[in-house]
């Protein structure tokens, strides 16, 4: 019970000071773990910048970004990255043609039509599809999709953009669907009710009210999915081939930025040569593009969430 004393009873004693030190120490260790993420980003940027800098002392930035011939490992060497960018773009466009309509339609079904029971079945299936390793999709492209395409179009090459596009589309589909689903479900119920009260049908409510209201969230989902497709590596390495070229024909062999990086790392290109440094230049480009897309998409999503909170 309280006793009369002149000393401040609340002043920290020796034991309190001891646990304070311990608490500060723990806090510091936890902070370091969180700060590791910043170090990771800085390391990535530093490594790519450093090696790309060496590369660009040999090859002009403009020649790199606008050249249309990519033959760094063959004579005569040429370091125009556009064929790799075109290959990647072809995959992204092809994958988007599948993932965007299918993903959005699935999301509309999940968010607007499906019963809770159906959701409970479909959501885990999407999660499983999202969890299948990319190398499996690569195998699937090579041994299942390509023969299927070849049966329809006999001119199809063994390695081709179409097959890789299709599996990359399937691969980013679950992500697209679940991000779109989140966006649609963020639209407040009152908006739907208001439209129904005006005599709109479910179709009109979905297309004229819900979708426009969720548009920025849906668009951000597409950007995130496209960024994922750009960074996809194993499926395109296995199925799309290793022939950097500028072509619009999806049945031909191409090469993406990621597949090129894998190709060099598998070979025995000596460390420190310009040929070797190409992978850092390509990776720097890849990192810049995907980071830019992600930052934009996250900004849009953050603003979208604010609107409905």
């Amino acid at each position: 019970m309280p006793q009369v004393s002149t000393a401040n009873p609340l002043l920290a004693g020796a034991s309190t000071r001891k646990y304070r030190t311990r608490e500060d120490l723990i806090r510091f260790v936890l902070f370091l773990c969180a700060f590791l993420s910043i170090l990771t980003t800085l390391s990535i940027i530093a490594i790519l910048a450093w090696e790309a800098y060496s590369f660009f002392r040999e090859v002009g930035v403009f020649d790199f970004l606008s050249g249309t011939r990519w033959t760094p490992l063959l004579e005569p060497r040429s370091f125009g990255v556009l064929p790799l960018v075109a290959g990647t773009a072809q995959i992204v466009v092809g994958a988007s043609l599948i993932a965007i309509p299918v993903g959005l339609a699935s999301a509309i079904y999940l968010a607007e039509f499906a019963s809770a029971k159906v959701r409970r079945v479909l959501k885990p299936v999407l999660e499983i599809l999202a969890g299948i390793p990319t190398v499996v999709y690569g195998y699937f492209a090579l041994t299942f999709v390509t023969p299927l395409i070849a049966a329809v179009f006999p001119s199809t090459q063994i390695f081709n953009a179409a097959s890789a596009s299709i599996v990359v589309g399937i691969m980013v589909l679950p992500m697209t669907a679940s991000l779109c689903d989140d966006a649609l479900r963020a639209v407040p119920e009152s908006l739907r009710q208001g439209a129904f009260a005006l005599g709109a049908t479910q179709f009109e409510v979905t297309l004229r009210v819900v979708l426009p209201a969720a548009l920025s969230g849906v668009m951000a989902s597409f950007v995130l999915a496209a960024s994922r497709a750009i960074g996809e590596t194993m499926a395109v390495t296995l199925a799309a081939g290793a022939t950097p070229k500028m072509t619009l024909d999806p049945l031909q062999s191409i090469q993406t930025m990621t597949a090129y990086i894998v190709q060099v790392s598998l070979g025995d290109t000596p460390v420190g040569t310009v040929e070797y440094q190409t992978i850092f230049a390509v990776a720097a480009l890849l990192f810049t593009i995907t980071l830019g897309m992600n930052v934009i998409a996250h900004r849009v999503l953050a603003r979208f969430r604010e609107v409905y909170e």
């Binding site: 309280p2 609340l10 002043l11 920290a12 309190t16």
Partner: peptide, 11 residues
């Protein structure tokens, strides 16, 4: 008990 609980030294 006469001591400021918001004093700087108080934990």
């Amino acid at each position: 008990m006469g001591s400021d609980i918001y004093a700087r030294q108080v934990d």
